[in-house]
Nucleic acid binder design. Structure first.
Lengths: 343, 343
DNA sequence: GGCGGCTTCTGGATCGTTCCAACGTGAGGA
DNA sequence: TCCTCACGTTGGAACGATCCAGAAGCCGCC
């Protein structure tokens, strides 16, 4: 039943329902928010009225009174053109669904200026959102510290690398475990000369992922010197790095910090007429769409983004409850999507 | 200057600013919303007070009074796994930026149920959003008709294919022009046997894109019979279709309705040891990340998604102004991103 | 029957903003 | 001097929900 068929344009209010049910406004409010306070027969009468009128609480009024917006702010960082990293998609979808089940909606914003704090401040001060989900926790990003100082509730996707004593809630994926998984997979296939192509040294995430590769190699007493390269996250860089490694270190397999770099390796192999998967194995990171549809398929470490979203919402619910409950950081394990590029 | 440094936890209100500036609340409100009503010296005094206190209007209160939320609802449809279609990303980013400049925020939602109207109704009735942007205008989707019946303001990304007399605002990309561009590009390269792989016949968008290919072919008096295939939008379907066409019609080039299908063609060519770009040319549709990073690069029709977002916001602004202004539908032209797969 | 104690329900106040009607002020004309 | 008029400014009411204190109803117990 919908109010849209009625003559009046305005949606029904609490008072309309109260009048129809023959009770006071407060009783209707209780029926909606604290049904257990009502006598069963009263509750039934009120709910009938609600259904007949198609009543739904006005969010603005509720927000004003409760000083909460039931919105969660998310800065939308688009994937860079020419890279394979469109993981945002899968993540955001689950985030929207999960938060919706908890009564929260996702509000997107972006920084128009170069200021990494752009957008956060305005939304917070205008009480447009109750909390934030912060995703870009790269080195030196001041968001976490700033939000903490503002006492703004937020949860981070990503560990506080540069401040181990940071007190905010976070959820992250164990990148080292992912590359270790990838490297072991290649070792089990019989490879011994496994190269690493990752990001520049100032990337905590890159170094973390690299450590997984190194750990798996050292575990089997295999050397890593001369087998690692650290470059920018572009296809061209990956291609150049792979080319240099092929010339100098003759690896039979590559583990990469991203699918973008892995695609660079495929380029380099293609340049030399080497078949990937058969002659040389390649593993990427992110299980992007590119990994899934490239001819043959690219083996790739898959982050449990759906699970990350669920954990983030869970943490936010704790943070926004009264009294606030703060769980410890959550570290999830990735899996490996095996395709032809690794045999 | 921020209020966060102050002792009181609550943000400053209009009344606080009014007191500090020595004027009434309404005058502050006017300073914010209708500055031209104030005498310059009063305006300056009020603005000083606003800056000193770091005042920003409370959105809930404003929304309640003005009966508007300044939010735009967008149903977030995630790309399917295993396809190359992650165009949402580029589109959403510009949408967030553009709408932000007009004072609107993007609210994401998703349908938890199978009901295509899921989510729309609740948001509308609870006055959580002022309008919607509808993106999935596939055949038989009742959203547009339903929203029209509810008198809910909305703008569609996609033409009202199944109802040419639909009265709502829309923005779309001329798919036929895109495939025509692609086909001409191949014709200019000397190809004459150019095949088409598209979607099943019940897809209006698919048939539109197909018509561009057919038009370009007929323009040069080239045959199209036996050169077209209509399948599902998966890599495997594209591969099978390409394989069959290669056997039966011996095309030297393919134009596809999506990058996903084009990747299927690349698979089929790879299976036969045919070099794409050199022996057989391939053009996709969407300029996805896959097209950009696949070895050699896939030539692809690029939709002006940024421009679409801008036009959508422009149309929404008209719709939400008083009185509402409804422009005609807007049809934008795609471009062609040429890469190695077409020579 | 009267009275505390518990549940259930009520009316008024409140959140922070904008709408509305009315008010004070100063310039200009009679 | 008085009146008109326009401009700038003001206080009260309203938006629709929830919080709060208290009233009404109901129970059993003395």
């Amino acid at each position: 039943m919908s109010w849209s068929g009625r003559l009046s344009l305005a949606p029904p209010t609490l008072a309309d329902v109260a009048e129809r049910a023959g009770v006071s406004r407060q009783t209707v409010s209780n029926a909606v928010n604290n049904p257990e306070l009502l006598r069963p027969d009263t509750l039934a009468r009120v709910q009938d009225a609600i259904n007949e009128l198609g009543y739904l609480p006005n969010r603005a009024a509720r927000n004003l009174r409760t000083r909460a917006s039931h919105m969660i702010g998310l800065k939308f960082n688009p994937a860079q053109e020419g890279t394979a990293n469109a993981a945002m998609d899968r993540f955001v979808h689950t985030l929207v669904e999960t938060s919706g089940e908890s009564g929260y909606h996702i509000l997107l914003f972006s920084d128009t200026t170069d200021d990494p704090l752009g957008g956060y401040d305005d939304l917070l001060r205008s009480t447009a959102v109750d909390a934030f989900i912060v995703t870009d926790t790269y080195l030196g990003n001041p968001q976490a510290a700033w939000l903490t100082a503002q006492r703004a509730p937020f949860v981070a996707f990503g560990r506080p690398w540069d401040n181990p004593r940071a007190s905010h809630a976070w959820v992250d994926v164990d990148g080292a475990a992912g590359t270790e998984l990838a490297t072991r997979h290649l070792l089990d296939k019989g490879h011994t000369r496994i190269a690493w192509i990752g990001w520049r040294k100032d990337s905590f995430i890159g170094e973390d992922r690299r450590s997984g590769w190194a750990r798996a190699m050292h575990e089997r007493d295999l050397p890593t010197t001369g087998l690692a390269s650290r470059v920018e996250d572009t296809v061209a860089s990956g291609r150049d790095a792979a080319s240099a490694l092929l010339d100098e270190a003759h690896p039979s397999a590559f583990v990469c910090a991203s699918d973008t770099l892995a695609m660079g390796v495929l380029h380099a192999l293609g340049d030399r007429g080497i078949y990937w998967g058969k002659d040389v194995a390649v593993v990427g990171f992110d299980d992007s769409q590119v990994a899934q549809v490239v001819p043959g398929g690219l083996t790739s470490v898959r982050q449990p983004l759906e699970q990350v979203a669920v954990e983030l919402v869970k943490a936010l619910e704790g943070l926004l409850s009264t009294p606030p409950v703060m769980g410890p950081g959550v570290l999830l394990s990735p899996t490996l999507a095996v395709r032809m590029s690794s045999g």
